[in-house]
């Protein structure tokens, strides 16, 4: 018996987020034979993302659009998806564990009076028995969970599950009109795009991160350049944030964000336990630090004992040349 799975997909800057395809792959795995997958996209203009999503085989892609949905807000987004949930009556709802997915999922779970397993990094299905693995203590340990009763609500961590690669017959795109909640009690009145790098840390394939050794806000400039060459994101340790070198939104650790990129480059970071929790699941870790005794070297695949202000610019230069050589 197949299951009905609803995927709450997500777009950014009118492009489908990669994690949406990871959610779709999870849906395919959980729906089983004869299952039914429906995706939902919410926003002001989701045409391009819907097209991308519809290229992957599924029952339908539902778009709920309105001008007010341009920026995520919990009440409005819930009002956008609720009628779809009530109509589709899903056995399983899957969302990305992103800023908006993690905000919306508990409302959906509460609406369905359902259990929710958050921030899933692996799904194992053996017949009817499905288990979900997720980090606790920011990855200092992992727990495996299962649902005791349905429906299920699951949020998946970006960058951990394989993305869906099924290209079947194009799925139909269904447009729904949006009905505002009454009364409207909360709304976004202003949105400012932060200057500089806006790549989501948790989705970046490469993270260049700075600690106290960066010594000042200006000290982050060579790190930002390195991140840019690698199309990566900039991160920081708690020490760097507390010292005011950078914004708290960059903090990686048990407080802050947990990242699992392909490459993590720690510059001037000593490696406090609270920081290691946030990055030690990265696939490849490189540490650059003056202090050869720094604990970060105990978990780094490659270490360079030296001055980051000499090594990082040199590395950026080498990478720039090598990447240009390949492209030409």
């Amino acid at each position: 018996m197949g299951k009905t799975v609803l995927v709450i997909a997500e777009q950014k800057d009118q492009k489908l987020r990669q994690v949406s395809l990871e959610a779709l792959a999870a849906a395919r795995q959980l729906a089983g034979d004869g299952g039914n997958i429906v995706s939902v996209l919410v926003g002001d203009n989701v045409d391009a993302a819907a097209q991308q999503l519809a290229d992957h085989e599924q029952s339908q892609v539902v778009c709920v659009t309105a001008d007010i949905l341009v920026s995520y807000e919990a009440e409005h987004y819930f009002a956008a998806v609720q009628p779809v949930i009530d109509e589709v009556k899903p056995d399983i709802v899957i969302l990305p564990h992103t800023a908006s997915g993690r905000d919306l999922a508990p409302k959906i779970a509460c609406h369905l009076d359902a259990g929710q397993i958050s921030d899933v990094v692996a799904i194992e299905a053996v017949g009817e028995d499905v288990t979900f693995k997720r980090p606790i203590y920011a990855g200092k340990a992992f727990e495996t969970k299962r649902f005791l009763t349905g429906p299920w609500v699951v949020t998946i961590r970006p960058n951990n599950l394989q993305a869906d690669a099924t290209n079947g017959a194009a799925a139909p795109i269904v447009k729904r009109t949006y009905t505002e909640p009454t009364p409207v009690r909360s709304q976004v009145v202003d949105v400012q795009r932060k200057s500089g790098d806006t790549r989501d840390l948790t989705e970046a394939k490469v993270v260049v991160s700075g600690g106290r050794g960066v010594r000042s806000a200006d000290g982050f400039a060579p790190l930002a350049e390195l991140a840019e060459v690698l199309d990566g994101a900039l991160g920081a340790s708690r020490a760097a944030c507390d010292a005011g070198y950078c914004d708290y939104s960059l903090q990686i650790g048990q407080t802050g964000k947990v990242v699992t990129p392909d490459v993590y480059i720690a510059c001037g970071i000593s490696g406090a336990i609270q920081h290691l929790a946030g990055m030690s699941q990265s696939k490849l870790i490189i540490a650059i630090n003056k202090d050869g005794e720094a604990p970060i070297f105990d978990i780094a695949d490659y270490g360079v004992v030296g001055d980051l202000f000499e090594i990082v610019p040199k590395l950026t230069e080498k990478l720039r040349d090598k990447i240009a050589a390949v492209r030409s």
Binding site: G115, Q116, I117, T131, G139, K140, A141, F142, E143, T144, K145, R146, F147, L148, S280, Q281, I285, G292, F297, D298, I299, A300, D301, Y302, G303, V304, V305
Partner: peptide, 17 residues
Amino acid sequence: VARIDLSLPPKRQAGQR
């Protein structure tokens, strides 16, 4: 929902300098 297992992440080894 119920927890059925707990584990620690594989220990990372210090790599190459």
